[in-house]
Amino acid sequence: MSRRRTSGTADAGRHIPWSGAVLLLVVGLYFALPLIATGVFSFWEGGTRYGPSAYISLVHQDALWESLWLSLRLALETIGLSLLVLVPAVFWMHLRVPRLKSLFDFISVLPFVVPPIVLVAGLTALFHGPDWFVGTPNYLVAPYVILALPYTYRALDVGMRALDLRTLTEASHSLGAGWGLFILRVLLPNLASALAGAALLTIAIVMGEFTFANVLLFNTFAVYINYIGQTSATEAAALTLLSFVITWLAMLGVLLSGRGKGQAQLGGAR
């Protein structure tokens, strides 16, 4: 009797009520319809003709590939600089000065409350430096690190909180390892998911960032999408979809990396 009831409860748990199904459908349509419409429009060739001409045209535009590679390069540089600064900082905060966590949390959300246009104005006024930095797209890495800070910090913070850093550090030292060996062999491998999450979120942010690049007159992928939008509507739709796919792949990577073997699971899990 009780088995039947338990089984019934489990079935009820899997069953989605009709009100929930309707809500899911409405939300799904809200997200999917613009994408479908954009996709259909990207294949429109005028009148009643549909075909891949927008995509073919895009593929043959060197400027597109240049902007795409530039954005990818900037994303990689941003990831490198963010991790170089944040991994030691967050590690040290967790290990030695956990009382500063609220300060770190506060600083990490500042990019949310300061609009990008204010940031870029401040950057223009404040940053003076060599031409190879200020005069090139490399300059964008500085604001991108700040822009990605909330996501990078959160990913690293969650990853490090899942580890007993003090015990692992001391265990490693007691076995003869110095800081370098500990970081390379123990810390980074156990933060693989967190690092992958931080990196993929950064890629998603940098690929879609428009304000900084446009104001500072650099031709990144997002700026090129905007330019195409002003000259060819169907190609802009195709590019938007392409950008969306890149972002989605990055997000999918974040989700999948969180399920991997590298995810820290400390003792007593069994």
């Binding site: 007993d164 692992l168 001391e170 490693s172 030292h173 007691s174 003869g176 390892a177 123990v186 003792g267």
Partner: peptide
Amino acid sequence: LPANQRQLGMVFQAYSLFPN
């Protein structure tokens, strides 16, 4: 002497195996 040069073995109260 720093801990990593003392050549002492230690087992901790918390589980301290390297998860990776």
